Amino acid sequence: MASYPPGQCCIQGFRHEGEATGQIITFGPENVQAYVATAAPDKVRNGSGILFVPDIFGLWQNTKLVADQFAAEGYTTFVVDVFKGDPLPYPPPMDLNFRKWIEEGDDGKPPHNSAVIDPIILDAVRALKERYGVTKVGAVGYCFGAKYVVRHLNKTSGIDSGFFAHPSFVTQDELAGVQGPLSIAAAEVDQQFPPDLRHLSEEILQKIGLPYQINLYSGVSHGFAIRADISQPQQKWAKEQAHAQAVAWFDHTLQLSSEKL
């Protein structure tokens, strides 16, 4: 594993306050939902947009607010409901069987595995390009969502550059298969992405030979980039810097041709 499977820390964190300004749409043959935050025409970054694969809470408040931030930076952002209406509620129930929810879904819903999610990602990339005129796609993933950034950072899926924070469930083979530049925001305290796996990931990315970046944030734990306690100055700063890291990465990698990377 390049990161361990989701654990208890993946369901902990804080809900953020604010008013989301995007809209909910449906896309693809199965009418999957997405939250879309559209960049203002005068701020669009050279035809670039962002596919956002969320954490296990799906299209919740925190996700929407972060998407709105990307749109304010000039990146129309498409947040995919990879759970097809079955995200974990926030806060999660005390008796949650996390593993069962991932492998089997809940109340008749489909499981939350690659066989179900991969086609959704492909449909989302197509929708982002066809509906919103995006020509270069960056992908962001938080916790659970990191796996699908890694799986689809390739020419076949149509994703040009990737960023993820505090990953879970990423395998070594998946990471070794990326075909585009990748930026990682890591937490100092993270059972899913501890130092040994972070160093292993660095070794894998070095061998690939494409541009990569791994930033380590002190004083924070798994989930900080999407569920930080922003009443705590260090957590708030780290969350904001991880977001700035993603924007700077896409500013660099999506605005340059692949020959220059």
Rank of each mutant, 00 (worst) to 15 (best):
L51V: 14
D86E: 04
T21S: 13
V32F: 05
I56K: 05
G22Y: 13
N46T: 12
F27G: 06
G47A: 05
M94E: 15
V44S: 04
V80P: 03
D55F: 07
Q61I: 11
L65T: 15
P54C: 03
P89E: 12
W101P: 05
Y35H: 00
A72H: 11
G18E: 01
W101L: 05
N31E: 14
Y35D: 02
T26S: 12
F78E: 02
V80G: 02
V44M: 06
P91N: 03
D81I: 07
V44I: 13
F98M: 15
G49D: 13
I56H: 06
Q23S: 10
R99P: 08
D86F: 05
N46P: 05
W60P: 00
V36T: 03
L88M: 08
D68G: 13
A67F: 08
A20L: 03
E73A: 14
L96V: 07
D68T: 13
T77S: 14
Q69S: 13
E19K: 08
F70S: 04
K100S: 15
T76I: 09
I56Y: 04
N46H: 12
E19T: 15
N62I: 09
A34H: 01
G74H: 11
N31R: 14
G47F: 10
P92K: 04
A37D: 00
P54T: 06
Q69G: 10
D55A: 09
W60G: 08
V66T: 15
G49R: 04
T38G: 02
Q69K: 14
F70T: 03
N62L: 08
A71G: 10
F98A: 12
T76C: 07
D68I: 12
L65N: 12
V79F: 09
T77A: 06
A40N: 00
N46G: 07
S48F: 01
F98K: 05
I56M: 11
D42R: 01
A34Q: 02
Y75K: 10
V32K: 05
Q23K: 15
Q33N: 10
P91H: 04
G85S: 06
K43E: 01
T77Q: 10
A67M: 09
F78D: 01
E19I: 10
E30S: 14
Q33T: 02
R99D: 15
G49I: 07
Q33S: 06
T21H: 07
I24K: 04
F52L: 14
K84C: 10
Y90R: 11
W60M: 12
M94S: 15
P41W: 00
F27Y: 15
P91L: 01
K84M: 11
Q69Y: 06
Y90K: 09
Q23F: 01
T76W: 06
F27A: 08
